[in-house]
Structures are given as structure tokens and as C-alpha cells.
Amino acid sequence: MTRTRRLALATAVTVLALVALFGPGLVANQSQIASGTCSQKYPDETRFSVGWRPLPVPGWYCTVGSTGDSLRLGWWLR
């Protein structure tokens, strides 16, 4: 394998790893949609937080204040 091909392969692997780790976690409007989705899924809760997590399954998660329960909302939200 030539040096150029090794560099291309390393770049591709790095990009894939970054997408797997962060994915839509780098998109601000996805966090806003996650917030709205969380609010609708827990209409009785008065406090919650949202955030992107790579583990155990990559995706947006909603954590409810009163119980600390976390719910995975999905990878890409609409």
C-alpha cells in the first residue's frame, strides 16, 4: 500500500469514527428537536435535560429530572 493510500484509509477511518461518536450530536437544531420531543414524551415532568451520547447506543437521550430516567430518542430526529 502506497503512502497516499494509507493516508486516505486513515482519513476515511477517522471520519467514520467521528460520525459514529458524534453524528447528529454536532447539529444544534437536532438538540432543539430533542428538547421538544422529550417535553412531549414526558408531559407531566417539569424538568429534563437532553444530550448526545455515543454509548451504549449512539443517539439523543432525554433524562428526566425527578427520576433520573434516561430515554433514547433516536439517532436523527424529525
Binding site: 432543539q32 424538568r47 435535560s49 437532553v50
Partner: peptide, 8 residues
């Protein structure tokens, strides 16, 4: 701007 936490 990334949403973090909400209070209703």
C-alpha cells in the same frame, strides 16, 4: 446553540 436542560 445546543439545548441542554429545560424547566417548565
Amino acid at each position: 446553540i445546543f439545548a441542554q436542560e429545560s424547566v417548565i
